[in-house]
Design a protein around this nucleic acid. Structure first.
Lengths: 225, 225
DNA sequence: CCCGTAGCCTACTGATGAGTAGGTACGGGA
DNA sequence: TCCCGTACCTACTCATCAGTAGGCTACGGG
């Protein structure tokens, strides 16, 4: 009980609206990530947030609105984290590398956010899944643009163009799946996980056979011990 | 209404138990795939199956049992389909190639099964997610074994061994994600989708730059026009 | 000191849906 | 013919929530 009370914000009175909204969203992300959309109850969210249920309805609206707000907030944070890692002036492989690292850093730091985004939102068929699918589509587009830029630096035929979007989808899926795997193996450092995926997508599995690997070029802003 | 009636089995009386069980499972897979576990109601399932609700409880048990039964049946079908395509005497790349093709064929033919397996089961935190995670783990192990065999054919160091499981997870995720993408782009032939993924995982994205591609060797049972 | 308003609550309603009680109908064996 | 078991149903109970009605309290400005 004392543990639970530590997890709840001390019941403070008369806080300004935006503070309460943040508390409610934090609680909602946590509860949604634990139970999923349908099993999460507004009562539990209000309890965890340390406010009463009508406050949620007053500030964030109905359950679907609340969920959509969670998705929007967390997805925006994720995309910003990734975008911050990717600088357009870099070579395609380094862009991908920094994007991957930023992604895994986010997942490692915000596990609950990640669960909500990946597990819950994708599965529910409701009106919010659009919210999430749109966000996922943005991620795919980001990767797609990267691939297209890589490809157009050389000659590129029609079929390759069509396939980049599919490849981007596959790549995003690989990242999601590997992130889940990583949650079950937290002892592996983030950089190592990122480099595995980087090698897979950039060099292919051929390196398992012939031993070639991709390594980041030191001059590109990686501090080297 | 006539359309709906066509989708429901004509209300036949006094069928043997195993027939009814199959009808119920078919209906359950359809309804679960459309609404997800929590939103799917036993009433709708019984309605679609053309039986009354107590029949479901008598034959398949409670809602969780029913869902687990769906997962088990569909997952077994999927694994069997993949295993049927992979023959152990082939080279690793050809094994992967045939496995991928069998996988995409299954997804194309059994869309509802796939939705239940991928979207619904993974997301619910309930007791059945274990059922599904176990099955997913089996798929990962299958791929992992393939990678290990590929790697041990050459010298292989410690870190590479650790990473194969992660790579397998990434690969399975890439397949899942690409399968979802394919559901939204059904005009692309199954073989083409499979070859995209095969190239990604075997050759890496490097081919976008230098244009090398993996092609199946004709002698391995692929009819070549 | 009074009033408006923003913050906040307890205690309800109403719908939905899981699960069941208790039956009827039909067929096969004694 | 009478049982008995299997197939099958209608019509409930009961718990769980989403969502709300209505009111109470503190603060700030006039």
């Amino acid at each position: 009980m004392s543990v639970d009370e530590q997890r709840r914000p001390a019941r403070v009175k008369r806080l300004p609206r935006d503070v309460r909204e943040r508390q409610i969203l934090d609680a909602a992300v946590r509860v949604f990530s634990q139970h999923g959309y349908h099993s999460a109850s507004m009562d539990e969210i209000s309890d965890v947030a340390g406010v009463s249920k009508p406050m949620i309805y007053a500030y964030l609206g109905h359950k679907e609105d609340l969920f959509a707000a969670c998705i929007r907030r967390e997805a925006t944070l994720l995309m910003e984290a990734i975008a911050a890692g990717v600088r357009a002036e870099l070579a395609p492989d380094m862009q991908l590398w920094h994007g991957l690292r930023a992604f895994f850093r986010f997942v490692g730091a915000q596990r609950e956010s990640w669960r909500v985004l990946h597990r819950q939102a994708t599965s529910q068929g409701g009106p919010f899944s659009e919210e999430l699918l749109a966000m996922r589509g943005r991620a795919i587009n980001l990767v797609d643009a990267l691939l297209v830029r890589s490809a157009t630096s050389r000659g590129l035929d029609e079929t390759a163009t069509k396939s980049t979007e599919a490849l981007a989808a596959a790549l995003v899926g690989a990242g999601e799946s590997l992130a889940d795997w990583w949650l079950d193996h937290p002892d592996v450092p983030e950089k190592v996980v990122a480099s595995w995926l980087m090698n897979l997508v950039w060099m292919g599995l051929g390196d398992l056979v012939d031993g070639t690997v991709w390594v980041p070029t030191p001059e590109a802003g990686e501090p080297q011990p």
